[in-house]
Design a protein around this nucleic acid. Structure first.
Length: 424
DNA sequence: CTGGGGAAGGGGCCC
DNA sequence: GGGGCCCCTTCCCCA
């Protein structure tokens, strides 16, 4: 995780889906469809009462394409209870082929489905299933096909944490090893897997777990003992995330963003501090989970160092920016902000806003420029960016010949004429 | 001082 | 009326 070592293999990996589809399927080629601009996130709003009822009983069923030792440790309790089809491919230790595809497919359709993983080229599919205690829920293809999965809010529920299900961030080492490791450096991997333990129940309704309890609980989720205690599972839903690796091998991100001598660990701490020092922010973010227990990761290909970029983006000042703009759990109350970011608990007035916001944390950038492969989390920013290529500068100064591509730049420029000095 | 991008807020339209 | 979606605007940061 140490930054500034260079050797980051640029990659280009997108979280996108075909227009008009709300779920990814294995057989769907995923293309960057900037026109659709549709969010790719599967979001679950969990009624707090349900989550509370599920409580520690929530179990996560999960399968990965890799039998990373550490990952295996985390998941094997689950696997142990069920037949498990071994992965076809061994953990990628040797230098990987240019692309690696990891596919996990469901073999059985039952709740206790056996998940089979295979590795070929280009695609990563991760299927998560959360078990649901005594719920009437079944995996509902119709709902899966209709986007956000939602349970009606419980009476009195005011805050709805929005979970970005199954999205994973994976590290590969910059030297081209397709592996994530598992091993020597716990900090070298990161995953935002949907850990039921991370289910924040919202500011008002969350279970009262102290951090210590939470950590304990968190680590216990993957222990056999805890599983034994959990009793019935809680099936919330099953979401498949497919990461198409057909993209160019270069991730068009300015390397300067990665920063020479950049200490990811430092920023990680900063981010944590931004949460921990904010009394309004609960500490249940997945990033805390990363700290609190060893992370789980899936190795991808050498081109997946994009995930380094993603992780950097997560860590690089986003939390700080949230501080700077009054972010945090309860910033701004102009409108009721029922939708909470699952990562930082910041509230938003509508689902789409929080989905977009969560891209700050996930690194998802569904909108790509056709001219230069730059990618954006927001459609408007892509549109603005494209003026770089078209040369369009719609904003002209009335007092000089200068023209600008951004309105804000014109506004800023006009201080030159007005002599306004905004900052003393 | 300019160029470019990140991120959030707000408004309009449609269902 | 409310939510989803889209777009625009705005502020900010960094190079």
């Amino acid at each position: 995780m140490a930054r500034g070592e260079g050797h980051l293999t640029e990659s280009h990996r997108s979280f996108v889906k075909p227009a008009g589809h709300n779920t990814w399927r294995d057989d769907q080629p995923i293309t960057v469809d900037e026109g659709s601009g549709t969010s790719t996130q599967q979001v679950i709003i969990i009624e707090s009462a349900d989550a509370e009822a599920a409580g520690p009983g929530v179990k996560l069923e999960r399968s990965e394409g890799e039998e990373d030792p550490r990952h295996s440790r985390d998941t094997q309790t689950r696997v142990a209870a069920e037949p498990h089809v071994a992965t076809k491919d061994p953990p990628t230790i040797a230098p990987a082929p240019p692309r690696t595809r990891h596919r996990i497919t469901e073999v059985s359709g039952t709740q206790n489905a056996v998940l089979k993983s295979e590795t070929d080229t280009d695609t990563l599919t991760v299927t998560h299933r959360l078990l649901h205690t005594g719920s009437d829920h079944k995996s509902d293809p119709e709902r899966l096909g209709k986007g956000p999965l939602r349970y009606p809010p419980a009476p009195g529920t005011e805050y709805l944490p929005v979970f970005h299900q199954s999205q994973r961030m994976v590290h590969s080492r910059g030297d081209g090893d397709a592996l994530d490791t598992g091993g020597d450096d716990p900090s070298c991997s990161y995953s935002t897997e949907m850990d039921p333990g991370n289910i924040s129940l919202g500011l008002e309704t969350q279970t009262d777990l102290s951090r210590e309890d939470w950590n304990q609980y968190n680590s216990g989720l993957y222990s056999e003992g805890s599983l034994d205690k959990k009793g019935e599972g809680l099936v919330i839903d099953e979401v498949t995330v497919k990461v198409e690796g057909d993209a160019p091998l270069t991730w068009n991100v300015d390397k300067t963003h990665l920063g020479e001598g950049y200490s990811q660990g430092r920023d990680f701490l900063d981010y944590r501090e931004s949460l921990e020092t904010n009394p309004n922010v609960t500490t249940h973010s997945p990033l805390h989970t990363v700290r609190d227990r060893e992370s789980v990761s899936t190795s991808m290909g050498p081109s997946d160092s994009h995930n380094h970029v993603l992780f950097d983006q997560v860590l690089n000042s986003k939390g700080q920016r949230a501080k700077g703009r009054g972010g945090g759990a309860t910033s701004g109350n102009s409108k009721e902000k029922r939708f909470l970011c699952m990562f930082c608990n910041k509230g938003f007035s509508c689902l789409q806003k929080v989905e977009i916001h969560q891209r700050v944390h996930t690194g998802e950038k569904p909108y790509s420029c056709m001219q230069c492969h730059m990618r954006f989390a927001e459609a408007g920013n892509l549109k603005r960016h494209q003026r770089v290529h078209t040369g369009e500068k719609p904003f002209g100064c009335t007092q000089c010949h200068m023209r600008f591509a951004q309105a804000g730049h014109l506004k800023r420029h006009q201080r030159v004429h007005t002599g306004e000095k905004s900052y003393s």
